[in-house]
Simulated scan of single mutants.
Amino acid sequence: MSNNGTQLKVHNRAMIAGALVGGIASGVENWKRQQQGEQSIQETTCKVVKDAAKAGVVSGAAMYVANATAGRPVLTMLTVLSTAAAGLYLIDSIKGNKNEQPK
């Protein structure tokens, strides 16, 4: 019996994996800050959810475009470069949030 209708596509799996990895990384960092009293549990939760969503969207979109451009080396290279740029932007965004001082 086949269950092909219930299998996730490659970009959906990449989105889930990216959200998990991004959420875990953000969770570890924000949990430390919450334990030190720098932010409340609500702020911690919001930041982790936002970071997980960002990472998931970047991963899913990159895999979708890479899958669509399969067999086209120039487009695949541009996809890899744009994904790297988006990943660096996401890392800078997370680091920027760490450097903000509460007023």
Results as ranks from 00 to 15, higher is better:
Y64T: 08
V49E: 11
L75R: 13
K103W: 12
V57A: 14
S40I: 07
R33Q: 13
G23H: 00
I41N: 07
M15W: 00
K9S: 09
G71S: 13
G5S: 06
Q7E: 02
W31S: 14
A86E: 07
R13E: 07
K103Q: 11
L8C: 02
G96E: 11
C46G: 12
G60E: 05
K50L: 09
V57G: 11
K95L: 09
C46F: 13
K32H: 12
N97G: 08
G37W: 08
I16P: 00
W31C: 13
Q101N: 14
V74N: 09
N12C: 04
G96V: 10
G5Q: 06
Q39G: 01
T45G: 09
T45E: 08
Q36E: 14
E43C: 04
V65H: 15
P73I: 05
Q35G: 01
T76K: 05
N4A: 15
E43F: 01
R72N: 06
S2C: 08
Q42I: 13
S40W: 07
N4E: 15
I94R: 04
N67E: 15
E29Q: 09
G5V: 00
A62L: 01
K50E: 09
G27K: 05
E43S: 04
A62D: 00
M1L: 11
G27N: 08
R72M: 04
N12V: 04
Q101C: 12
T69V: 08
D92R: 02
T83G: 02
N12F: 04
Q36P: 10
D51S: 10
H11W: 14
E100L: 09
G87H: 03
I41H: 07
E43K: 02
M77I: 06
M77R: 09
A66L: 14
N30R: 15
I94C: 11
V80F: 09
T79N: 12
K50V: 02
G23A: 01
N30S: 14
A85T: 10
V80P: 02
V58T: 07
T69G: 04
A62F: 00
L78E: 07
I41L: 10
A17G: 06
N99L: 12
V49Q: 11
D51H: 05
A62H: 01
